[in-house]
């Protein structure tokens, strides 16, 4: 009889331990892949402001080296949609609005890096004229990556003999 009591006591203790152990089970978490640049940049964006930068003047320390174009030529209507496929990979893009075509108003895009680079080099959106992405038509440096605030800065730089001479700095906000 005494043995049975010990057994029951042990059993209850085991059950209690089991139950409480279950409550304190360590959550190792499930695997979540890191947020890619593509995830941050895709979608509909609308212009907040646009600045034209004279790279030659800037390098030489001449003024003015920057000029706001925001209120010119309906640039305030400028929008860009960066589309991705189901896997989040960049596909096509389209520019909307009536602003001058500083770059091709439609085509395809890709990124030169999936994740922000640790050396500070801004990721770059590469623009293409074809779906196969063989005909490069331009590139936009992502100088401001969207974070908590849904704003992005893109910079288009034109070069001649590999020397930059003019840039366009777009500040965009995401259409929610």
């Amino acid at each position: 009889m005494k043995q049975i009591k010990y057994f029951n006591g042990s059993f209850l203790l085991f059950v209690a331990i089991f139950i409480f152990t279950g409550c304190a089970d360590t959550d190792d978490g499930s695997y979540v892949s890191p947020i890619t640049v593509s995830e941050k940049t895709n979608g509909d964006w609308h212009l907040l402001n646009l600045t034209q930068i004279d790279e030659t003047a800037k390098k030489a320390g001449l003024n003015p080296s920057e000029m706001s174009l925001t209120d010119q030529f309906e640039f305030t209507t400028f929008g860009i949609t960066l589309n991705v496929d189901d896997d989040g990979n960049p596909t096509s893009y389209a520019v909307s609005g009536n602003a001058p075509d500083i770059f091709n108003e439609q085509g395809y895009w890709s990124l030169d890096t999936d994740f922000p680079q640790t050396n500070g080099t801004p990721p770059t959106i590469l623009l293409y004229g074809d779906a196969a992405k063989t005909q490069k038509t331009g590139k936009l440096s992502i100088t401001g990556i969207p974070g908590a605030t849904p704003e992005m800065e893109l910079k288009l730089t034109r070069t001649s003999n590999n020397v930059p001479f003019v840039s366009y700095q777009f500040k965009l906000t995401k259409n929610q």
Binding site: Q52, I53, D54, L62, M67, L69, Q72, F73, R158, V166
Partner: peptide, 13 residues
């Protein structure tokens, strides 16, 4: 004139 160097794809100020 702005910018100092300009192409036909740009805005002249």
């Amino acid at each position: 004139f702005f910018p100092v160097k300009i192409s036909l794809k740009d805005i002249l100020v």
